[in-house]
């Protein structure tokens, strides 16, 4: 994982991707107990023309470094399938803008804040998200004021209370 993050940090330093942060279930592992997951979600700004995202320069750069597309949208970097994603909603953009610095094995990286990860799971609202919210809340209390502020700004307060009661 530290080697994977080193490659991703290089992509950012080279300007191939914009500011990035780890989200999804791997992001959550930085705060709570691990749940089974098989890919690393990297949210970042990528060159865009209209509604279309141009992944060409990213894939070409990774191919030069020896990393090929594994299956579908994943690229295996140092043994870990990585998916590069543009923030699809205002909430995820907010999470990326406010991501915090963390370290893994001595390598610096950026991760969505815990409260943003919880709000994103409420927004996506799949069965597995609801299960992960319940597990997360059992193991670590979020900063309630921060979480409420995020939920309020993104119109998720009602959904959050339906999920958690």
């Amino acid at each position: 994982m530290d080697r994977t993050l080193t490659v991703i940090n290089t992509l950012e330093a080279e300007g191939i991707i914009g500011k990035y942060a780890i989200g999804g279930a791997i992001g959550l592992i930085f705060y709570v107990e691990p749940t089974a997951t098989y890919d690393l979600d990297i949210f970042c700004h990528l060159p865009q023309s209209g509604l279309l995202i141009n992944l060409g320069p990213l894939y070409a750069n990774l191919a030069k470094k020896g990393y090929q597309q594994a299956d579908g949208e994943h690229i295996k970097i140092e043994g870990i399938p990585v998916q590069f994603l543009c923030p699809p909603t205002d909430l995820v953009r907010d999470a990326l803008d406010n991501a915090v610095e963390k370290e893994f094995g001595g390598v610096k990286t950026r991760v969505f804040q815990y409260e943003h990860l919880l709000a994103i799971m409420a927004e996506t609202n799949r069965t597995k998200d609801k299960i992960r919210i319940a597990q997360a809340l059992e193991s670590v209390e979020p900063d309630q004021a921060k979480l409420n502020d995020i939920l309020k700004r993104h119109n998720l307060l009602d959904r959050w209370s339906r999920i958690t009661t």
Partner: peptide, 10 residues
Amino acid sequence: RRAMAAKPVE
């Protein structure tokens, strides 16, 4: 669950 959450990410 809480003990696991408190462990280092590695």
